[in-house]
């Protein structure tokens, strides 16, 4: 569905190769400055790579016009301004731009917006101004806008970074349901434990390189946690849930190389 071949972006991304299929929920992890946002932006076609190709359904994404991209890849940037002067419904309608560039929505467009609002549980808030929503609800509205795009691929840059624990789990569960529905969902995540709990596949970036790609259990080895995330940590089975978790004991002091 999405294939990346030898992707470079100046020195911030180096020789990234990966392939993703439908139905996958992929966690993109890495320490600050590893290049997670840059990679997502290149995958979304918003950033033009200095080398390599990102293919969506077999076509190079950077060769196509913005509206072609937006119909296939929905990308949610990390920061959403908090003073957007529109209602939830108006905001979600913006996801239909690639089909209705003049803002005149057809019945199909309306149906896509209705469905996106329903899936994200925002029907009762649809006429509320975005500024009246809580942080978690705003983030749900942003994901609803991505869904309204009708794209089979969702790329989300830290969609739960500033949310409380309830909304973190709520949004991840909704995203996993979308993946089970056949979409490809790739999210940049800082919470390694949540990547373990919700993603079937984790890719890890370190200094612009892809250093690990596999199930979270395979990726989060004590060695990787030490070398990449600079923490003393080891995975363990949670005795209550049986799920894989991380026991993090200490940050490793910075040592010059």
């Amino acid at each position: 569905m999405m294939d990346i071949f030898h992707l470079h972006y100046h020195h911030r991304l180096e020789d990234i190769c990966a392939a993703f299929g439908p139905g996958e929920m992929v966690g993109l992890v890495g320490p600050n400055g590893a290049g997670k946002s840059t990679l997502l932006r290149a995958m979304a076609g918003v950033l033009r790579p200095t080398g390599g190709v990102v293919q969506v359904m077999g076509e190079a994404i950077h060769a196509r016009e913005p509206r072609w991209r937006a119909r296939r890849v929905a990308y949610l940037p990390q920061f959403l301004p908090d003073d957007i002067p529109f209602t939830v419904r108006e905001f979600v309608e913006m996801g239909r731009y690639s089909y209705a560039p003049q803002g005149v929505l057809s019945r199909t467009d309306m149906a896509a917006v209705d469905e996106a609002l329903a899936v994200m549980g925002l029907v009762e808030h649809e006429d509320a101004p975005l500024t009246h929503l809580s942080g978690g609800e705003r983030q749900r509205a942003a994901i609803a806008r991505c869904l309204a795009q009708g794209a089979p691929i969702l790329l989300l840059d830290e969609p739960i970074a500033s949310l409380d624990i309830h909304y973190q789990l709520d949004i991840l569960a909704r995203l996993r349901a979308l993946a089970e529905d056949g979409r490809l969902v790739i999210i940049a995540l800082h919470h390694l434990e949540l990547a373990l709990a919700y993603c079937q596949r984790t890719i890890c970036l370190h200094r612009g390189r892809l250093v690990a790609d596999g199930s979270p259990g395979e990726v989060f080895t004590p060695a990787l946690l030490r070398d990449v995330f600079r923490v003393d940590a080891r995975p363990f089975r949670d005795p209550h849930s049986g799920a894989l978790r991380l026991s993090v004991s200490a940050a490793i002091p910075h040592t010059p190389e």
């Binding site: 937006a70 949610l76 959403l80 002067p85 731009y97």
Partner: peptide
Amino acid sequence: SFAYDILTTGEEHAEAVGVD
């Protein structure tokens, strides 16, 4: 005008939904 509406959400978001 629809593109101008979308631009109030920021350029990055506008590009994400397909605005040139």
